[in-house]
Structures are given as C-alpha cells and as structure tokens.
C-alpha cells in the first residue's frame, strides 16, 4: 500500500510542478500583456477582449473545464487520461489565474517607479524585464505559491477523472472500496505538500523583500 502511496505522490508532484511551471511560463507574459494593454489607449479593445477571456476561463469550474477540453486534450496529448493529459488541463486552467495574479502585482508597482523608469528613457522591453519583473519579484513568488497550492486541489480533482496521483488513489480506495486509511494517508500527504509550498514560498518571498 505504501509503495502505491509513494507512486501516487510522485505522480501528483510531477503534475503539480510541471503544470505550475508551464502556467508560470505562459501566465506571467500574459499578465504583462494585460498590464501593458490596460495602460495603452490604442490597445483598450484588445484589453477588454483578453480581460473577458481570462474572466471566462477563471469562472468555469475545473471539472467542467476538463470535460469541455476533452476533444482538445485528445487532439493535443493523444489521450485524455493519465498525468500528461491532466497536466494539459491543469495548465489551461492555471494560465489565466496566474495572468490575473501577476497583472495585479504589476498594477501595484508604485506609479513613481514607473515614472522614473520612463524618465530614464527605457523602452517597453526594458520596462518589463528590468523594472516590472524585478520590482514585483517577491509578489510573483507569492503568486506562484498561491498558484501551486491551488493546483494541489486541482490535481486531486483531476484524479477523479483518471489523472492518477493521490486524488485518484483516494477515490479508488475510499470511494469504491471504503479503505479510509488510504484516504487519510493521501490527505496527509496533500496537506503536507501544501504546507511545504506555503513555507518555502513564504521564506523565499521574505528573503527577496528588503
């Protein structure tokens, strides 16, 4: 039984970290895009569109999103079950979430810092890479922490529809066979992962704040 829990834990971690990584990789640039569009008179309509899209994706419950995505997942990943299919779903759900969180952090950069950067003649690219990202780094670490903790829950939900990992383990043993000890262990591991993420993220962000 413990080897199964161990295997499921590894699957969960794999889904969590890879989807978290991909969501950050695409979500932050989308957040930058949202931020820049919202501040440009010319791109106001593009912003309205992106904003709506992000809101729509964020308001669809994850389990429904997985159902809606079935044809796409099948096309892109070649399968709709297993960790890799789940990673696709998790990433799609997490990108808009991460984009919104990072957009909020960019908006919170004091306007004076933006002014003084502009007064030095920075171009857009330098503005993003040398000012917006560095000035929000501790906040972005916090955002990634929140994202990952949310993804822990999502992986468990994904487990119910065949993704594998601790969620599926709990469903299989608890829901179908009433082996509550397995459910308990799965829950303990999930809580431990969340705690560890919170602790590490908090420490990292604190270390970066001056």
């Amino acid at each position: 039984m413990f080897s199964q829990i161990f295997k499921a834990t590894l699957e969960t971690l794999y889904m969590l970290l890879l989807s978290g990584f991909l969501a950050t990789l695409f979500g932050i640039p989308l957040g930058v895009g949202l931020y820049l569009c919202s501040r440009s008179r010319r791109l106001k309509t593009l912003y309205a569109l992106l904003d709506l899209l992000v809101n729509i994706f964020r308001s669809i419950p994850f389990i429904i999103l997985v159902l809606l995505l079935i044809p796409v997942t099948k096309n892109v990943m070649g399968t709709i079950i297993g960790p890799n299919a789940a990673i696709f779903n998790l990433t799609i759900a997490a990108i808009p979430f991460m984009a919104r969180l990072s957009e909020n952090s960019f908006n919170a950069v004091p306007s004076g810092i933006i002014d003084s950067s502009n007064s030095m003649g920075l171009n857009k690219w330098q503005m993003v890479t040398r000012v917006l990202i560095p000035e929000t780094l501790p906040d972005q670490i916090g955002n990634i922490t929140v994202l990952l903790i949310n993804l822990v829950t999502y992986t468990a939900i994904a487990g119910a529809v065949g993704a594998g990992g601790l969620g599926q383990l709990a469903i299989n043993y608890g829901y179908y066979r009433f082996q509550w000890d397995v459910v308990l262990y799965a829950v303990i591991v999930l809580v431990a992962i969340s705690q560890l993420l919170q602790f590490t993220g908090g420490k990292l962000a604190k270390g970066l704040r001056k």
């Binding site: 004091p110 004076g112 810092i113 007064s119 030095m120 003649g121 000012v131 000035e135």
Partner: peptide, 17 residues
C-alpha cells in the same frame, strides 16, 4: 530626449529591490 534630462522626483522613486 529623456536620456538627456535627469529627474529627481519628490518621492525619490528608487528601485526597491
């Protein structure tokens, strides 16, 4: 042009990190 004009703002606006 901006590179030729230095500005010191009232709130200094130094980069925090």
């Amino acid at each position: 042009i901006r590179k030729k004009i230095g500005v010191v703002f009232q709130s200094y606006n130094l980069f925090r990190y």
